[in-house]
């Protein structure tokens, strides 16, 4: 088997807080093959976005740092690479779209300029070539009247259109990896579906691998082949999407799935009861403790869970679950 496009091993990201250092990402490993799509799932504050920012080298300055572990992209080690090289990769080989289309575009430049500048920076296109390319890209993300809209400012566009512009910016240089950090959270449901369709279609055309961050299990089923369930900075479970939805091996995954009734494959299947996961994600200062951090919310909790961090239990097809009771679920 050839080397994967992106390989993250034992990644640990620490945030310096007022009352000490918290590992927001604690011993995370995963792989992403070329053209593959993978989904990060979990509640807010579980470290999904931090993983993305870590890969991009955009952790908040002076607060966040990669403490240990490796991020290997296309044979290159991103944790030790120079800032200059990292800038050449960002927006060019790995790009990212964000959760907030309303505020993620610069209000004082035209959308055309904001697309064109990436092309000028990375592809060395001339001003007019980049501008024409921006028009084509707007067309590709299905903004009607692209030729006219290219000189619009972000405030003249709707939320869905702005997210399309963000996608156009991210895909301008045909990156190998696109990281989408909750790309549809701020949008209407109908617009969400359109954005997913668009991402899927562009992925088919360009062969870009997608890392999709979401807390919507429905989106996962629609977008990804494999998923990683994160809880409190740790990998709770990962593996092929269908296999996990079919048979989750971690109580947290199970809880997340039973929160969403509509992702069953057919209407005749027996449904789990629609339940919530009681409790909340533990505060940052409890991250990194040597125990199962989900224990306080788990209905299968035993003394072992409180005493020691569970190792990953390995099942078929790369499904792994960090739970002492994984085999019993």
């Amino acid at each position: 088997m050839s080397e994967p496009l992106l390989k993250v091993q034992n990644l640990r990201i620490e945030l310096s807080l007022r009352d000490g250092i918290a590992p927001v990402i604690d011993d995370l490993s995963f792989e992403l093959g070329a053209g593959e799509s993978i989904s990060f799932v979990g509640e807010s504050g579980c470290g999904k976005s931090m993983t993305a920012l870590g890969i991009m080298g955009l952790l908040p300055e002076k607060v966040g740092r990669i403490a240990s572990g490796t991020i290997t992209f296309d044979g290159e080690e991103l944790t030790t690479v120079t800032q200059k090289r990292l800038r050449a990769i960002r927006g060019n080989e790995i790009s990212m779209i964000f959760q907030e289309p309303m505020t993620s575009l610069n209000p004082v430049y035209t959308v055309g300029e904001q697309i064109a500048e990436v092309l000028r920076a990375h592809q060395g296109l001339s001003k007019s070539a980049a501008w024409n390319c921006a028009i084509e890209l707007l067309d590709a993300v299905r903004i009607p009247n692209a030729r006219r809209r290219v000189s619009d400012y972000p405030f003249q566009m709707s939320g869905g259109q702005r997210q399309r512009v963000m996608i156009a910016i991210a895909l301008a240089c045909e990156p190998k990896i696109l990281i989408a950090d909750e790309p549809t959270t701020a949008l209407d449901v109908t617009v969400q579906a359109e954005i997913f369709d668009l991402l899927n279609e562009l992925k088919r055309q360009t062969g870009t691998a997608i890392i999709m961050i979401t807390h919507d299990m429905g989106a996962v089923a629609e977008m990804a082949e494999r998923m990683i369930v994160m809880y409190a900075g740790r990998n709770a479970e990962q593996g092929p999407v269908e296999q996990i939805i079919d048979h989750p091996r971690h109580p947290y995954t199970k809880g997340l799935i039973s929160c969403v009734p509509h992702i069953m494959a057919t209407l005749n299947d027996e449904r789990y009861e629609l339940t919530e996961i009681a409790g909340i994600v533990p505060p940052l200062r409890e991250f990194g403790q040597d125990r199962c951090l989900f224990a306080s919310r788990c209905n299968m909790v035993s003394q072992k869970c409180l005493d020691k961090r569970p190792p990953e239990a390995i099942f078929g097809d790369g499904q792994r679950a960090a739970c002492w009771h994984a085999g019993a679920i």
Binding site: L58, S95, M96, E100, S104
Partner: peptide
């Protein structure tokens, strides 16, 4: 957020500060 976007585009520090941030 848009300054973060500018960084994510891989623009130089100078462009991020003097083009994207300053004008705003």
């Amino acid at each position: 957020d848009y300054v973060r976007t500018a960084k994510a585009k891989g623009l130089s520090e100078r462009e991020v500060v003097y083009k994207h941030a300053l004008k705003n």
